[in-house]
Design a protein around this nucleic acid. Structure first.
Lengths: 239, 239
DNA sequence: ACCTGAACACCGTTCAAGT
DNA sequence: ACCTGAACACCGTTCAAGT
């Protein structure tokens, strides 16, 4: 109760930078922390505000709405993608696959960002460097201009869809055991179908339910897409 | 105020089937109505209950949770896909593309269902008929078993991602004019980038921002995927 | 067995009032 | 100019109480 008279009686404020002003960067930092710790579902204006020790209304001075905050999170993740290897025209297909793997890695490192990435057009510097690199690789493969441009849309769409699917599944509270039980139940179900109406589904029950976990499925997809793109190469490249 | 004595004095109940019991089908019907009228965002347990003239708690006797309701909506949409043409092995690539177009059509006819379809495994009869037909076409193209099985996953993933992207964009309150302005602003932005660092992005600015609307982008994607799958055909089919 | 009102613990966004 | 408390109009889910 007693207190030295020369001590101020104002209550001890949180020692760290008690009134550091809000700004976009601090908001995105906080949102990113919530995203990585608790997933996309948890990134609410309220939770982000709480992480900053303020109320939700305070964010609206710096961020137009939730949608814009999502967009900023996507830019953050896009900026984390690294492509160090110099472009080697002879290895354009392999280098394109490496880019897709790096995109998936960055999305997985920021669980939940995939949902925000769907339909977003990242325009930050590092995202543009990705686009430029993809175009360089595609032109190295003699892909026509319009096809290359659409490929630059198709490639992130596929990677994002895979990443989003993973986050939807992990949003369930299933243990790996539950998943395994579900998959083996699925296989039994396929096997039990009437073979006269569903002959291939029955015969391929094992294949249909394999590789659900792990990256085999993803690798299959990038192999198909890159092979499909390669088939579009111009036979006689101009100049 | 006056009333014939042989008329019951209970207040006029809503004439139509005043106490028809709830069941899964009625719930899914109502949810589908809300989905088509107002999109996925609007399909809440509360709204669906309201459409049925009851409270949200009543639904939980028939549907485990929102997730299960989503699943049921996906089955509904999957059941609307029609594939009448008999399988023609010589035209397996064209028929596979036709299937993808039909999937997209059904998803568009049920706006919002795409979001629910991501990560879902539709197991209803008509969905299984789709799977069987896809496998038949892929085997007609001499695709190996495991590749065919993964393709059955990849194909709906791509179509669903395209459909979901469309619903995300239409969830914005942008008019077609706004979209056009955005796209042309994007083109100007690409064109204005430093040409020494982003030469291809600058040069292909027009191609990068074309075909955003319409089905050209989708057609490009299915062409790439089907060509990529074709490249996996076994040279010497066993059997 | 099925249905329901009320509650609990959440959302995004707005707005008048403060500094 | 920036921040805030309080409110508005929503969510999914649970549960005790009714029929």
């Amino acid at each position: 109760m007693t207190q030295s008279p020369w001590q101020p009686i104002t209550p001890a404020k949180p020692a760290r930078t008690p009134k550091e002003p809000l700004n976009r960067e601090r908001i995105v930092d906080a949102a990113m922390r919530v995203l990585v710790e608790s997933g996309y579902e948890a990134v609410s204006m309220r939770k982000v505000a709480q992480a900053l020790g303020t109320g939700p209304a305070s964010l609206y001075a710096h961020v137009a709405n939730k949608r814009e905050l999502d967009q900023l999170l996507v830019e953050r993740a896009a900026a984390q993608m690294r492509y160090d290897e110099p472009v080697d025209p002879a290895r354009w297909q392999e280098q394109l696959k490496a880019m897709m793997r790096e995109m998936l890695r960055a999305m997985r490192a920021n669980p939940g960002v995939a949902r925000a990435a769907i339909g977003a057009v990242p325009l930050g510097e590092r995202a543009l460097m990705s686009t430029e690199r993809m175009l360089t690789l595609l032109k190295a493969g003699n892909i026509p201009d319009q096809a290359a441009a659409w490929a630059v849309d198709l490639i992130p769409l596929y990677v994002t869809a895979i990443a989003f699917e993973e986050t939807v599944q992990s949003a369930t509270d299933w243990t790996p055991d539950d998943v395994e039980r579900f998959v083996s139940g699925l296989r039994s179900y396929f096997e039990s179908l009437p073979a006269d109406r569903f002959p291939l589904t029955v015969a391929l029950a094992g294949a249909l339910t394999s590789g659900a976990a792990g990256d085999e499925r993803f690798e299959f997809g990038i192999a198909v897409i890159v092979a499909g793109l390669a088939s579009l190469a111009e036979k006689n490249p101009a100049s």
